[in-house]
Amino acid sequence: KKSYVLIKVKNPKTKETHTIVVPEENLEEVLKALASQPNVKVVDIERFP
């Protein structure tokens, strides 16, 4: 059974918020990819039960 993680990201320029759902096993690479985006800020990470 896969567990999923909900990542909320915000664009500081446009103030838009997006929610991305990723499998927990991919969380680290997704966070690394997001960290390299200049106008993306991770605001929240939630685990799915």
Rank of each mutant, 00 (worst) to 15 (best):
V43N: 02
S36Y: 06
P23D: 11
V42L: 05
F48C: 14
T14E: 03
Y4G: 03
K41H: 13
A33K: 10
A35L: 14
E24A: 07
V5Y: 15
E16Q: 11
V21L: 12
L34Y: 03
D44E: 12
L6Q: 12
E46P: 01
V22D: 00
V22E: 01
K2H: 14
P12Q: 15
I7S: 00
T14A: 03
F48W: 14
P23A: 13
H18S: 08
N11M: 04
A35T: 08
S36E: 11
K10H: 15
P12A: 15
E28T: 07
T19K: 05
K13L: 14
H18V: 11
L6Y: 11
V5N: 01
K10N: 10
V30P: 00
K41R: 10
I7C: 01
A33P: 00
E46I: 14
K8T: 14
A33S: 10
L34H: 00
E24Q: 06
S36N: 11
E28A: 11
V30Y: 06
V43E: 04
R47L: 08
P38I: 09
V43K: 03
P49C: 07
V43P: 01
L31Q: 01
V40D: 02
R47A: 07
V22W: 03
D44W: 15
N26L: 14
K41A: 08
E46W: 06
H18T: 10
E25P: 03
P38L: 07
L34N: 00
L6V: 15
K8I: 14
I20T: 01
E46R: 15
P49S: 06
I20D: 00
S3N: 12
V22S: 02
F48H: 08
K41W: 05
K13R: 12
T17D: 03
S36T: 09
S36M: 13
L31A: 01
L27M: 05
N39L: 05
T14W: 04
F48R: 05
V5F: 13
E24G: 04
P23R: 10
V40L: 14
R47C: 11
E24P: 04
K1D: 11
V5C: 05
L31V: 02
P38R: 09
N11L: 06
I45K: 01
K2A: 07
I20M: 06
S3M: 13
A33E: 08
E24T: 08
H18K: 09
N39Q: 07
I7Y: 00
D44Q: 13
E24R: 06
K2I: 11
P38T: 11
V43F: 03
S3A: 12
E29Q: 10
L31F: 02
K2P: 15
K15Y: 05
K32M: 10
K32G: 04
Q37P: 02
L6E: 14
L6S: 13
Q37R: 11
Q37E: 07
L27H: 02
K1P: 09
Q37F: 12
K13C: 09
E29T: 07
V5R: 01
P49F: 05
Q37G: 03
